[in-house]
Amino acid sequence: MTLDFWGLGLQAVNVLILVWLLTRVFWRPVAAAIVARQTAAQALLSDAEGTQAKADAALAEVTKAREEIAAERAAMLASAAQEAEVAVQAKMAEARAKAEALVEAAKVAQGHAAEAARKEQTRQAATLAVEIAGKLLARLDPNAVQGAFLAQLVAAVEGLPEQDRAALTRGGTLVSAAALDDAGQARIAEALGKMPGLTFVVDPALIAGFVLRTQHVVLHDSWQSDLDHILKDLRHAA
């Protein structure tokens, strides 16, 4: 076995040439392509980072705008709530005033109604009292009562001025609750000084007493007229 140094040298040159050629034809172009793509990818990544930064900034701006909108909304809601509260208070005050006015009006109406009822009741009570009094007086002895009234009438006639007494003698009507007997008629004539031209009328409605009517004078002296006065006074008082 021998070593061919010519062959060794030629093979070494062959491999060196192959190394030189492949470096230029294969290794460098492929490596350059890898580097170029890595550079392009890096540029894309840089662009993407720039876009990402812009997007982040836009997002931050949008977030800030949303926060401002939310704050504005909250302020508007608070303002609206305050305005609503004021309106509610005003409405409540208005309603309270109306209610108080209604209550006051109702009280007034109630007072008027109560006053009217009280007056009506007073009037009815007066009427009833007069009726009761009339009925009670009617139960008294008619002759005794008529005698007492006759005495009062005689005293009244005697107390009249002469001119009025003379007018009574010229004619008139004497209304009595019961028929006046002769003695009674004589006492009246005596009080007038002469027998007058009187017409005697009986009216049981007088209960007791007399009503003397002339052309110019009407003299009431009966329980009926007294009760009418009392009833009038009571009603007036009510």
Binding site: N14, L18, P29
Partner: peptide, 27 residues
């Protein structure tokens, strides 16, 4: 020798193959 001839053949194959494969490299 045959080894040298084969080496030349291998060199030719590798070079032609490398040239053909790396003609159009793109991104």
């Amino acid at each position: 020798t045959q080894a040298i001839l084969t080496t030349w053949g291998i060199m030719a194959v590798l070079l032609l193959g490398a040239f053909a494969l790396t003609r159009r490299l793109t991104l």
